[in-house]
Simulated assay, not measured.
Amino acid sequence: MEKEIVNKVANSKLEVFDLEDYFPKEEIVILDISKWLFEGFILKEKEFRDNLNKEDWSTYKDKGVILFCSTDAILPAWAYILITTYLQPFAKQVVHGNSQEYILLHYQRVLETVDYSIYKDKPVILKGCSKKAVPQSVYTLAIQKLMPVAKSVLFGEACSAVPLYKSK
């Protein structure tokens, strides 16, 4: 008679914290502001404001927007701020920078709202393999949230986890 195969991982008290569950769901748009500059390089305030007024900002409704300039234009600090005032009523989130910065800011916001009490005094695995590009810095944020509540924290998959933390 053969022994029954038992899934010890499924029967354990191990909780999985998967950062991919919190990955941004909104469409992320990269917006190059050089299109509103004279010859792509020079910010002429009146012309710049006129161009912004002509834009249909509703096309960014419920989207994440990353603002950047593809040229070497020297821009005043208020240029990105002004564009944000147009986007804010529509966009889900606006970031001046790149995709990594957008995702990091998203996770900073989201990880503040998670109810970590479900991990209280339990072993937790911080899932390491993901299909989406979760920045490494987000794992640093997550471990700081898990340590005060978890009994222990491991990284990776249940079959090959690396111990990171154990409460005393």
Rank of each mutant, 00 (worst) to 15 (best):
K13W: 02
F17M: 07
F17P: 06
E20L: 09
Y22G: 07
F23K: 02
F23M: 10
E27T: 12
I30N: 09
L31Y: 15
L31V: 08
L31F: 15
D32I: 09
D32G: 08
I33F: 10
S34Y: 06
K35D: 01
W36R: 00
L37H: 11
F38L: 12
E39W: 01
F41R: 11
F41S: 03
I42P: 00
E45D: 13
K46I: 10
K46V: 07
E47D: 15
F48C: 00
R49S: 06
R49N: 08
N51A: 11
N53L: 13
K54N: 14
K54H: 08
E55L: 09
W57A: 09
W57K: 05
S58G: 06
T59E: 15
T59Q: 15
Y60C: 01
V65K: 14
V65F: 11
I66R: 04
L67G: 08
S70Q: 04
S70D: 14
A73I: 11
A73Q: 10
A79W: 01
A79G: 03
Y80V: 03
Y80I: 01
T84P: 02
T84S: 15
T84F: 02
Y86S: 05
L87A: 04
Q88A: 15
K92W: 03
V95G: 02
H96K: 15
S99H: 13
S99F: 12
Q100F: 00
Y102G: 02
Y102C: 04
L104Q: 13
L104M: 13
L104F: 11
L105N: 14
H106N: 11
R109P: 00
V110L: 12
T113H: 13
T113F: 05
V114H: 10
V114G: 12
V114P: 14
Y116K: 00
S117Q: 13
S117D: 10
I118M: 08
I118D: 07
D121L: 03
D121W: 02
D121V: 01
P123K: 09
I125G: 08
I125Y: 05
C129G: 09
K132G: 01
A133F: 03
Q136D: 04
Q136G: 04
T140F: 13
A142I: 10
Q144K: 14
K145S: 08
V149T: 08
A150V: 10
